[in-house]
Amino acid sequence: MRFYAVAVYGFLYLPIAIIALFSFSAGRSASSMDGFSTGWYVRALSNPFVMEALWTSLKVAFFSAVLATVSGTMAALALTGMKGRLRAIFDVLVMIAVMIPGVVIGIAALIALATAFSAINPWLEVVLGRQLSMGLGTLIGLHGMFTMSLVVLLVRGRLETFDRAQIEASNDLGASPLGTFLQVTLPQIAPAILAGFLLAFTFSFDDFIMAFFVAGSETTLPIYIFSSIRRGVTPEINAIGTMVMVASLTLLIIAQILLRTGTLRAKG
């Protein structure tokens, strides 16, 4: 059994290891290891196209994650302990958002927004002298819509496990609803909120498929990587890929630690 486990772990890690290994190759060929060098990292980081795509990705990931965390947490607070039709509607919405494939969400958003934009743009042109188009706004909007659902699931899960008696006690002792929220509820759900933010950020940073449709003339890092792979893998792409993997792993490990300490505190 142990050999089997080792083999499966090998299967899981071999491809990642290969990319990381080849990214340190000194040679030009992407499929052989000729000496050791960090040259491709230097080259990737001084490539203006890569840096611009990275900057776009960071902006989209940050703003979509902030908006998703705020509105997702608000929704989770409202939904906890709620019954009735509105609750059922939101449960279905969250489920649809998570389940419908990214390619369908991306395409649906593309044709819906393109249609809506071409309907309102003539009016906007007259009134504001500006037009709506695909770009940072649509990227942030679509990523945020999806990751908001993840935040709702995480924060609601956390809210459901925590002791409601504490809220009642706080109310009985004369605290205002806001006071109770700030002093009792928020400290307890803070780890889940932060974990939700990190998850949302990482998802947006790694997402290719939704971004592909609504990016307009913008290029995010995954879009850059995808179009580069189509032209052939280079050691430079391996270096970028390795950096992206290390970055998202670091964020997600922090998120996991936050979730875990949150749970421990709740149990203790």
Binding site: P15, I16, I18, D206, F208, P222, I225, M245
Partner: peptide, 16 residues
Amino acid sequence: PFWTSILIRSYAWIYL
């Protein structure tokens, strides 16, 4: 591995 970009993990198989 599931946490890292599926795009990068998939293209690794081009090598293998």
